[in-house]
Design a protein around this nucleic acid. Structure first.
Lengths: 106, 106
DNA sequence: AATTTGCGAAACCGAATAGTTGCACATATA
DNA sequence: TATATGTGCAACTATTCGGTTTCGCAAATT
């Protein structure tokens, strides 16, 4: 199923899960312990995160380890690029204005 | 009303609007011309974007000009920082963990 | 003064969402 | 072999979401 990564990170619980499994692979049960909702609810979140490839699974016996696919996060970073350019240039424009004012002062 | 910025950028139409008014302030009518949905639908999106302060309004007569508040986008960038640290390491820590797990498996 | 234009708000609707409970099933463990 | 454990899936529910249509109102235009 095709999933939107921005829709995936819209939910605060999912963002917490992402942070939780960023450095360590964890099982659904272990993850669920960090939240108030049921294991099934967490499982649903993991399904959504897996569907948009933000999270990868590794099967070990009856356990499944989930862990963040960090590379996928770059997509958000890439989308931010267009705005990064703006907030950098708007800073430059401010410098420009300040510079002009200094020049006029003389 | 308190709004979540991540929930705001979850909708593809809203992301398009954001890009559209990133460099130029625009009226709802002008924005709506770029989409298939009605002006009222766009107005709803603008309301949500305004509520989470991603967009600023400027009243001019009976017209209202909407423009992106670029600074607010930095919040997303800031959230990405924790993951940027991970993907920027030359030897991915995540791969390291996986390797350790595979070794323990043997 | 009468009409047109630009806008937001309200009421409504179908679809999606996030949560629950109750299962089925494979894998460990006794 | 019998039981406990880890997991995903299905069915159901309340709520939210994105869209439309209809309306009211203020500002511009005639």
């Amino acid at each position: 199923m095709r999933r939107d990564i921005f829709q995936a990170i819209a939910d605060p619980t999912r963002r917490s899960i992402i942070t939780l499994i960023a450095l360590q692979a964890m099982t659904p049960n272990a993850i669920a312990e960090h939240f108030d909702s049921t294991r099934q609810a967490i499982s649903k979140h993991l399904r959504i995160l897996t569907e948009c490839e933000l999270v990868k699974q590794e099967y070990r016996g009856r356990e499944i380890y989930y862990q963040l696919e960090v590379k996928k996060m770059k997509e958000i970073d890439k989308w931010l690029d267009q705005f990064r350019k703006i907030w950098e240039t708007s800073f430059n424009q401010l410098d420009k204005v300040l510079l002009t004012m200094k020049k006029q002062k003389r």
